[in-house]
Design a protein around this nucleic acid. Sequence first.
DNA 1: ACAATAGTGTCTCTCAGACAGTATCGT
DNA 2: ACGATACTGTCTGAGAGACACTATTGT
Lengths: 235, 235
Amino acid sequence: MSELPDYDPSAFPPFAVTVDIVVLTIVDDRLQVVLIERGAPPFQGALAIPGGFVRIDEDLDTAATRELIEETGLDYLPQHLEQFGVYGQPGRDPRMRVVSVGYVAFLPEIPIPEAGTDAADAYLVAVDDALTDPGGLAFDHHVILTDAVEHARRSLESATTATAFLPPVFTVTELRGVYETVWGTSLDPGNFQKKVIDSEGFVIATGELRQGPRGRPAELYRAGPAETIDPPIRR
Amino acid sequence: MSELPDYDPSAFPPFAVTVDIVVLTIVDDRLQVVLIERGAPPFQGALAIPGGFVRIDEDLDTAATRELIEETGLDYLPQHLEQFGVYGQPGRDPRMRVVSVGYVAFLPEIPIPEAGTDAADAYLVAVDDALTDPGGLAFDHHVILTDAVEHARRSLESATTATAFLPPVFTVTELRGVYETVWGTSLDPGNFQKKVIDSEGFVIATGELRQGPRGRPAELYRAGPAETIDPPIRR
DNA sequence: ACAATAGTGTCTCTCAGACAGTATCGT
DNA sequence: ACGATACTGTCTGAGAGACACTATTGT
């Protein structure tokens, strides 16, 4: 079958469609992901990326937003929720044919509830730890998490998504910390400062200062209107 | 419903899953796309991106490859077939809930059959023409084609995908023509030459020459092993 | 010789990276 | 005063773009 006209609507192959949400945040200078513990087979007791069925009258993005709010108890609409891939290998769910749309969300360090609205327990796990054992996650979630992190790393290069990891007001040093944590590199503070300030619309100075425990007070910024960084910041 | 354990496999929302293949090629220095004419409602007589149902035991990439071969009569495996997005808006197909996975393929100028294995007529249409009228394509295929072209444009910047538009052996001028056609810009011949030759593993000199209708003969190259271009070629 | 196409050399400007230097705080 | 952190200035080298120049063909 290769085109729509000649099909029987009652005989199409039965698929389930789900969204999986990779919620990334930075805590203790480590990139962390929200994982839930599965309470029933298959993969009972294993950690999994939160997700759920798309409702029959619901848009994919809407389903992703709904699931994110259900799982994290978020009380506002996430700014950065991006689709990064589709996973439909037959047998990836042993019970039936499931096609899953992968989304990645960037959140500031906020209180993530230990359990969502459903009975499952939710945890914040360092990405490095979650990926050490290739079979440590349920289903094909090891691949999905790997792809999500790579998507996030690339996104920081030419998009202004890094600010989504931070509260509304932040310092340049904190922004640099996001890059260093997500990329796993260290960046020159002086050069990063100039690059960010020169990049039109990336950050906006508030005029306020914040005093840290030591040293000169840092100027406070908020996210600017720009969505891309040109030229990009290189890893 | 937010997690898999507590669902009834016989009561999941019934979705159909399809793949849509945006086949891009360059003919007459214009970026062209393979479109088929729909023979039945809805959108009877309108042009549409070729696609079809994913079989119940078939991988998404396999389904895309199969559809591509069915639609174009290709007798080899395409090197560049990339997933670029998922389209699942309720109502995008008026008959039922269809989630479609978008793939884009790059082909050299080869004889595209005017009709595939099914009864539908197939055409090669300039992308600019196909996108002039926002309602000119069936379903949401205007959006899908727009996204596919943007994916292709970005792909040329930092990946070596441009060679997929050319035969196995080609000149640097022909490669530059791919960039100019896909990007809709004009590039400096001298600078492009140096950039491509200096880019490790992008192209490999064959030592052969090809004489055009006029001028100095051009050296012939074939695609190299590199998959990325670093630093990228900027638009 | 001349036009046309292929390819090289040269100059300039931008920008990333290295790193020294200055500013402003707490102790 | 001193250390720590924030920020600025300066130098250098890589690379993109503009463009002149050379190379090799057909007419």
